[in-house]
Design a protein around this nucleic acid. Structure first.
Length: 583
RNA sequence: GGUCCCGUGGUGAAGUCUGGAGUUCACGCCGGCCUGUCAAGCCGGAGGUCGCGGGUUCAAAUCCCGUCGGGACCGCCA
């Protein structure tokens, strides 16, 4: 593929493209005025900037070209004189001389500098002037990286025979899942559409329709609180495929994600490994483990099965972390903070043990541990002089999750640090936890997720032990997305509903619109969806998905640039049959 | 719904704990000088309701209460 021709009626080249090979060519350039260095009436340097980069223009004529003026420059590319080459600039070997400058549009001084210094500016101000923020190299890079990821994902899905189908934005409200954005219907007053949390319903019906392989770069909307990795609106690569088992779906998504990563990094990662949910919890204390660093949880439960130490006695699980060389680093103050952190995460407490110079254990609780237990602990953890051990004893999920969070707190690298460690988490439990009021199991993924055939005979006798054909894709500790094989069999669906406390009548009422079509012949099918905003953020080395979204919302859901959301005109409300109830 | 952090000329920070005149630094802006700079340099200047409201005090950027805005996290996100 040849490079695009970027020339237009107003310009011959992009600023960032000029190189020694252009020396001697007359050029016309367009862009914004960056820094100027004026040396009196007869010499000025203007750094002309467009999205491709910056080029130094040498101006001898008198021109009033101030910061962020939009100008057009005609001149001659020439080598910079000896000693004036700028090695910090890709275009730094050359400059544009004999410049004639035409001001296309003057500009007021921007509220913040249009360069890397704006990284430190209050994010609210950056969002208020987002069109200026996006003018910066970092944001331009993020936008273009995002475009490249979208393109690579599309190319990969098409190559695998997937068909892009657009699904409606105006949907019926559905009873399960995230809070929806509602849209009032003008023609049916009092009736509402919902904006899609995901195209889940429609993509499964496309399988019933015989589309076989569907994909969509889909906009999803959820009216839940915003976070660094969550916006009201976000983009998923959504897909569904027929006549498949788990491996087929994982292979298709792996191909897409690896191709996209390869396309923007230049290096395609190797095959994506797998961890069972149980192993991920046991070894890393998380269902989205960050595999860029080791420090696995150490299983200590069996060592303390008969202990006399009350904090460990009878605990369902005892999990340890070995912080190499941490004994000196962690004084009483930091250890207290770690303990507080563990408690805020739901643990009853945190036991810490330092290994002293003679190999002896230094800890407030050392005296409660027998010599055998102490020896076994040192042997199991491999702890040596100067190491710090952190131990959590609790119910199995709590012990795992708290240890896993401490593992992240202590060692997790910043997002821009490689490598890219993708991992599939498979064999999620079909049910997680129990509803406080009904006492019924809660679905781990959703109510239409296929139980593992090897476990399905325990659906009634031991439901919590049933694994699901559900899987997550994790990258560097971020949950990129999730999917499952769906139930296409009516009898099995009703068995799962019964476990969830949903009667046949409830099921017909709440999900009939969705399940009735299956009666006309639903193929075995499964699918996946992953968050493109998150993938792009990680590939861009950004901690926050707002940095890879052109016009994001603040944490409170507002847009400082447009001022949205606004109260609307009473006439608009009246047309919809709506009235605002005062507080 | 909850916990925590932040709000000081256009921008970033210091000042806040321990109350005493809108004080300081850097960038930017405006004007002048300057023919090889690239964070150009030198000289001069303008620019603030210390987010907002209330309270305490002789006196509040500073202490207290409330509120608004921004951020991180918990809940929530099938």
């Amino acid at each position: 593929m040849s490079a695009p021709d970027y020339s237009t009626a107003l310009r011959s080249h992009r600023c960032g493209d000029l190189r020694p090979e252009h020396i001697g060519q007359p050029v016309s350039l367009t862009g914004w005025v960056g820094r100027r260095r004026e040396h009196g009436e007869h010499l000025a340097f203007i750094d002309l900037r467009d999205y491709s980069g910056t080029i130094q223009c040498v101006v001898a004529e008198q021109v009033d070209a101030r910061s962020e003026y939009v100008i057009r420059v005609e001149g001659m590319v020439r080598a910079r004189p000896d000693g004036t080459v700028n090695t910090n600039l890709p275009t730094g070997d050359v400059e544009v001389g004999d410049c004639h400058v035409e001001v296309l549009r003057t500009a007021e001084p921007p509220p913040f500098p249009i360069d890397a210094r704006a990284d430190g500016v209050d994010e609210g101000t950056r969002l208020e002037y987002r069109y200026l923020d996006l003018r910066r190299a970092r944001m331009q890079r993020n936008l273009r990286l995002r475009s490249a990821v979208n393109s690579a994902v599309r190319t990969s899905m098409e190559a695998q025979g997937f068909v892009e189908v657009e699904t409606p934005m105006l949907m019926p409200s559905t009873p399960e899942g995230a809070r929806e954005f509602l849209v009032p219907s003008r023609k049916g007053q009092g009736a509402f559409y919902a904006l899609p949390q995901s195209p889940q319903l429609f993509k499964q019906l496309l399988m019933v329709a015989g589309v076989d392989r569907y994909y969509q770069i889909a906009r999803c909307l959820r009216d839940e609180d915003l976070r660094a990795d969550r916006q009201y609106e976000f983009i998923q690569l959504d897909m569904e495929m027929s006549f498949v088992e788990v491996d087929d779906v994982l292979a298709a998504i792996s191909e897409s994600v690896l191709a996209a990563t390869g396309a923007v990094t230049g290096e395609r990662p190797g095959e994506i490994g797998r961890l069972t949910w149980h192993d991920a919890m046991n070894r890393f204390g998380s269902d989205k483990p960050d595999l860029r660093f080791a420090m696995e949880l150490i299983e200590l439960t069996d060592l303390f099965a008969d202990t006399g130490f009350k904090a460990f006695a009878g605990a369902e699980a005892v999990k340890g972390l070995r912080v190499e060389g941490g004994a000196g680093e962690f004084g009483r103050n930091r250890l207290d903070k770690l303990t507080d952190r563990a408690k805020s995460l739901g643990a009853k407490g945190l036991v810490w043990i330092k290994i002293g110079s003679g190999g002896e254990l230094e800890s407030p609780v050392a005296k409660f541990l027998s010599d055998t237990e102490q020896a076994a602990l040192v042997e199991r953890t491999g702890a040596g002089e100067g190491d710090l051990l952190l131990i959590v004893a609790d119910a199995w999920p709590t012990a795992c999750e708290v240890s896993g969070q401490l593992r992240n707190d202590l060692c997790r690298p910043p997002v821009h640090q490689g490598p890219y460690q993708f991992v599939w988490i498979v064999d999620f439990p079909l049910f997680v936890g129990v509803d406080d009021t009904s006492g019924r199991p809660l679905p781990g993924h959703h109510a239409f997720c296929m139980p593992n055939p090897d476990d399905v005979d325990r659906l009634e006798s031991d439901p919590m032990s049933v694994r699901a054909l559900a899987y997550d894709l994790v990258l560097n500790g971020w949950e990129l997305g999730s999917g499952s094989i769906r139930i296409h069999d009516d009898a099995l669906q009703r068995r799962v509903f019964r476990q969830l406390g949903i009667s046949d009548e409830d099921a017909d009422r709440k999900f009939g619109f969705f399940l009735n079509p299956f009666r006309y012949g639903a193929p075995p099918h499964g699918g996946f969806a992953f968050g493109l905003d998150r993938l792009v953020a990680i590939l861009a080395g950004e901690e926050n998905i707002r940095e890879v979204i052109a016009f994001p919302k603040t944490q409170s859901g507002s847009d400082p640039m447009t001022g949205a959301p606004f109260a609307v005109d009473p006439h608009q409300l009246a047309a919809l049959g709506l009235r605002i109830v005062p507080e």
